[in-house]
């Protein structure tokens, strides 16, 4: 294989992938010896962002932990599509207990491993917990907060697709405003999910002063992997919140999953950053912020905003929220920087 020198700014762009990088800088996914922790043959929808996110994240964690990972999984799409007996896609030790207790189950696994280590049984096995936004920001939030507060040695990964997709696209506390779901229908004077509700769990995680919090999207593989790798270097409670578009729930084309994730970041809708002990350490900057309309328009869950009479005010409201994110997280690249 031949290599050509590459300008540094190109590596973070949308078009330049691993081909231009020396092998040691390539992504885990690009490696032939990647772990394939979640194997092909599972039953996710075409273009599933969560399946992609889980594969990226867990493979990166496996790489960082030298294959010594145990995963706990909340009830949800990921759990259902990956494991009907006897066709489990998981190539790693994996446990699913309930919808709302994944962080606590992971705490239990970590505690057991700690005692085993003290007894000289078993090596340095690391624990990853994972769930969707429903299992994380709603029903599992108590257990998640408890795990954070105790600073248990667990990396919790939330795959956020903005709703309860497994049960047929209902609203969660991570559903964005104006989005249509089965429980926030696009009817009435204020169609879709209401403004002024919902929670952004990465910020709440930071408020627990845990050692590491990061957000990522499936659009930026190398950033996601770098964050998992960084998280695995740290002991204690860590949280990574990954935006994973859902073609079914969002009403987008299967081939647009990566594009939608990228647009969420490039519009400021979804801030991508990392924080240590409650302080933001870095952000993925936006070179030229795009108008939110570019992100909203391809999604059928926002179709009601773009009918014969476009909901100009609503779109402006969403734009204001994105602009606020850009200000709040300092997402706009300053002149001169990349």
């Amino acid at each position: 294989m031949s290599f050509q020198p590459v300008k540094f700014y190109q590596t973070g762009t949308f078009t330049v992938g691993n081909r231009l990088l020396p092998p040691e800088e390539r992504s885990v996914q690009a490696s032939a010896k990647r772990y394939n922790s979640i194997n092909s043959g599972h039953r996710a929808c075409q273009g599933c962002g969560e399946a992609l996110g889980a594969r990226y994240a867990i493979d990166a964690a496996m790489e960082a932990a030298d294959g010594q990972i145990i995963a706990a999984n909340a009830t949800g799409c990921l759990e259902v599509f990956s494991t009907p007996y006897p066709e489990t896609s998981w190539q790693i030790p994996w446990i699913h207990s309930l919808f709302g207790n994944t962080a606590a189950v992971a705490t239990g696994v970590a505690a057991a491993l700690k005692v085993k280590r003290q007894k000289g049984q078993g090596g340095d096995v690391r624990v990853v917990a994972q769930g969707g936004d429903g299992g994380t920001t709603d029903i599992g939030f108590g257990c998640l907060s408890g795990m954070f507060e105790r600073n248990d040695d667990v990396l919790y990964i939330c795959y956020d697709n903005g709703g309860y997709m497994n049960t047929g696209v209902q609203r969660s506390s991570a559903t964005p405003p104006a989005a249509r779901t089965a429980t926030t229908m696009a009817v009435g004077p204020e169609p879709g999910n209401v403004f002024g509700q919902g929670k952004f769990v990465p910020a709440i995680a930071m408020a627990h002063d845990i050692p590491y919090v990061a957000t990522a999207t499936v659009a930026d593989l190398r950033d996601l992997e770098a964050k998992v790798r960084r998280a695995m270097e740290i002991r204690g409670a860590r949280y990574i919140h990954i935006l994973v578009p859902c073609p079914l729930g969002w009403g987008t084309a299967s081939h647009d999953t990566i594009r939608m994730a990228r647009l969420a970041k490039e519009t400021g809708i979804f801030p991508v950053f990392e924080a240590e002990h409650g302080e933001i350490k870095s952000v993925l900057t936006i070179r030229r912020p795009l108008p939110v309309e570019e992100y909203l328009r391809p999604q059928k869950r926002y179709a009601h905003l773009f009918g014969k009479n476009p909901a100009v005010e609503t779109i402006a409201h969403i734009q204001a929220l994105a602009d606020r994110n850009i200000r709040k997280y300092r997402l706009e690249a300053r002149q001169g920087s990349h």
Binding site: N101, A104, G142, C143
Partner: peptide, 28 residues
């Protein structure tokens, strides 16, 4: 010792921690 004593945030978490620990091979 060695034993991990974990103050959890609810009984639901207590049983869940026990589930995780037991599944990882610990007497819980």
């Amino acid at each position: 010792a060695p034993c991990e004593f974990i103050n959890v945030e609810s009984e639901f978490a207590a049983m869940s921690v026990a589930i995780g620990a037991s599944a990882a091979g610990a007497r819980s």
